[in-house]
């Protein structure tokens, strides 16, 4: 039997006129990363707040670490860590004081809480700033402190609500490293994100939600297959070489597709794009372009954007179902 560390069925929650959750089912296997992908207002945060015992759903059931979230929230709270969408550190407390307080509230002895705080601050590269008030921290440092706070109690399940929103790309990759590290240490991570790229980089499984409903639950590869996968875009330095580029890229096109002039919204003309199955396409396309003497100014693999994911996932669904 698979060990499900998060199991939710039929979660519903309404705020006034907004049906934030409209029958959400979720499962996460122990020791994996589940990414909940969706646009703003899809219900991601509401789902996390229900699972993290902050919010009671109007209907449905949820089990975290095998414990009923509605019946025994205190037992659930001992086993989870939560990092909210906005870094919820106490600005007037130092890094150390923030973490020691969490440790004390988790019933660690003060000496143990201090040790754990020092360990986490070191690990998150905040040791030098440990004695400074959090209000003097940069955005990235606050995020790290916030994440550290959710790890004080060695949680079995970690909830991260948009952990990288607003971070620059380098900081984002640091955060990904932290998440992977937690999983190697045995934790299970449920994170919400608006970026397919992030879900692809981290998740074992992806749940796509929109308007309070799950519209897909798949592995990243499975999802990419369903939504069209990767696109290779090439822009030759001279626009006159576009026909040659089209011919070369046809050779790496995913089965049943072909290259075409890039007509993505807002794109300058003169580029070519082609659906590909994986990054091995580069190994073929790059030498071929060089042999043909084509100079390129831009060459990149793109994941479909969130818009494209939604477009393809909802294609063929009667319009009424989408409202």
């Amino acid at each position: 039997m698979t060990d499900l560390v998060v199991r939710a069925e039929g979660l519903r929650k309404r705020f006034g006129k907004t049906q934030a959750l409209d029958g959400v089912d979720l499962t996460m296997r122990r020791g994996t990363v589940l990414a909940v992908l969706g646009p703003n207002g899809a219900g991601k945060t509401t789902a996390v707040r229900v699972l993290a015992t902050l919010l009671r759903p109007d209907a449905g059931s949820a089990f975290v670490a095998g414990i009923d979230v509605l019946k025994e929230p205190q037992r659930v709270r001992r086993r989870i860590g939560l990092t909210g969408q906005y870094a919820s550190v106490d600005e007037d407390l130092t890094g150390t004081q923030n973490l020691v307080l969490i440790g004390q509230l988790l019933d660690l002895r003060t000496s143990d809480a201090r040790r754990r705080a020092a360990e986490l601050l070191e690990w998150f590269d905040l040791a030098e700033a440990a004695g400074r008030m959090a209000k003097t921290y940069s955005g990235g440092m606050r995020r790290r402190l916030d994440l550290a706070a959710s790890l004080v109690g060695h949680p079995e399940v970690i909830f991260l609500d948009e952990p990288t929103t607003g971070l620059d790309p380098a900081k984002r990759e640091d955060m990904w490293g932290v998440v992977r590290n937690q999983v190697t240490q045995g934790a299970s991570v449920l994170l919400t994100t608006q970026y397919l790229e992030e879900a692809d980089a981290l998740a074992d499984e992806i749940v796509v939600i929109d308007k309070g409903r799950v519209i897909a639950h798949d592995s990243p590869d499975g999802l990419k297959r369903r939504v069209g996968g990767l696109t290779l875009r090439v822009r030759p330095a001279e626009e006159s070489r576009v026909p040659d580029v089209l011919r070369i890229l046809d050779a790496v096109a995913a089965p049943g597709t072909s290259s075409s002039p890039d007509t993505a919204a807002g794109a300058r003309p003169g580029a070519v794009s082609v659906p590909v199955t994986g990054d091995t396409a580069l190994d073929i396309a790059v030498p071929a372009l060089r042999r043909a003497g084509i100079e390129v100014t831009d060459l990149a693999l793109h994941l479909p954007s969130l818009d494209e994911v939604f477009h393809s996932l909802t294609e063929g669904v009667p319009a009424k179902e989408l409202v």
């Binding site: 993290a52 015992t53 902050l54 205190q74 037992r75 709270r77 001992r78 989870i80 860590g81 939560l82 909210g84 906005y86 919820s88 550190v89 106490d90 969490i102 509230l105 988790l106 019933d107 706070a149 959710s150």
Partner: peptide, 17 residues
């Protein structure tokens, strides 16, 4: 409003604490 209490709520402390 700042979300500081969300963290306290996600910890196993009495609601009144």
């Amino acid at each position: 409003e700042k979300g500081v209490f969300d963290r306290f709520r996600s910890l196993p402390v009495a609601r009144s604490a």
